[in-house]
Amino acid sequence: MIVFDLICRDGSHQFEGWFGSSDDYEKQLAAGLIDCPSCGSSAIEKAVMAPNVGVKGNQRTSLPPASSSNRENIEPAQSGVPMTDQSLATTVSIPAEYQELIGKLAKAQTKMLEQSKWVGSDFPEQARAIHYGEKDATPIHGTASADDVTELQDEGIDIMPLPLPVTPPKAQN
């Protein structure tokens, strides 16, 4: 299975799509079988996304430096075998400039989130309370559904998605 972040060109709604392979995605898109769950539009395209690879708690959390030997010996991952950060490094060729860019983006996001409070699924309510002056203005981050995001934007509440996935504090090792 492969998961793509998809976006509807008509309403800019973002959502996930699960497919058997990249080829399955292309075939379904060409046949008009992929629709936006928010507005029903079939004008769909892949959104920019960062890789989301789960790592077991007892393994390293950083990728080893890219080497030319990694790039020369790329083998596709076997179906059904979970990928670790080590297998990712040997199965996916990520150009050095992209690794550097993602690393800088991750550092910037980490620095930004140090000043922000995780509020989880309570994000829409907390954002409203801050916007309407019921709570002191303080940076927060959390989760919100596509409908919540639309409602917050309709109310004039400034929010933005984080560029990289965030692991909730209670889910971290």
Results as ranks from 00 to 15, higher is better:
residue 5 D to K: 01
residue 152 L to T: 03
residue 9 R to Q: 15
residue 52 N to W: 11
residue 65 P to D: 14
residue 137 A to W: 07
residue 144 A to M: 12
residue 36 C to L: 06
residue 107 K to S: 12
residue 5 D to Q: 07
residue 137 A to L: 13
residue 153 Q to N: 01
residue 2 I to V: 11
residue 39 C to V: 09
residue 111 K to M: 04
residue 154 D to Q: 13
residue 102 I to G: 07
residue 141 H to A: 03
residue 6 L to N: 00
residue 72 E to K: 13
residue 20 G to W: 00
residue 32 G to D: 07
residue 3 V to F: 06
residue 49 M to P: 08
residue 68 S to F: 14
residue 113 L to Q: 13
residue 167 T to P: 04
residue 142 G to Q: 05
residue 152 L to D: 06
residue 84 T to H: 05
residue 53 V to T: 14
residue 162 L to T: 01
residue 164 L to K: 00
residue 34 I to E: 11
residue 97 E to M: 06
residue 53 V to N: 10
residue 149 V to G: 08
residue 120 G to N: 09
residue 159 I to Y: 03
residue 118 W to R: 09
residue 78 Q to A: 11
residue 137 A to G: 01
residue 61 T to M: 09
residue 156 G to R: 13
residue 136 D to R: 11
residue 111 K to C: 06
residue 58 N to L: 12
residue 74 I to G: 02
residue 75 E to K: 07
residue 164 L to S: 00
residue 117 K to N: 10
residue 73 N to T: 02
residue 38 S to N: 02
residue 79 S to V: 10
residue 32 G to W: 12
residue 133 G to P: 09
residue 14 Q to E: 12
residue 16 E to G: 03
residue 77 A to M: 13
residue 45 E to Y: 01
residue 173 N to G: 00
residue 88 L to P: 00
residue 57 G to F: 06
residue 156 G to C: 11
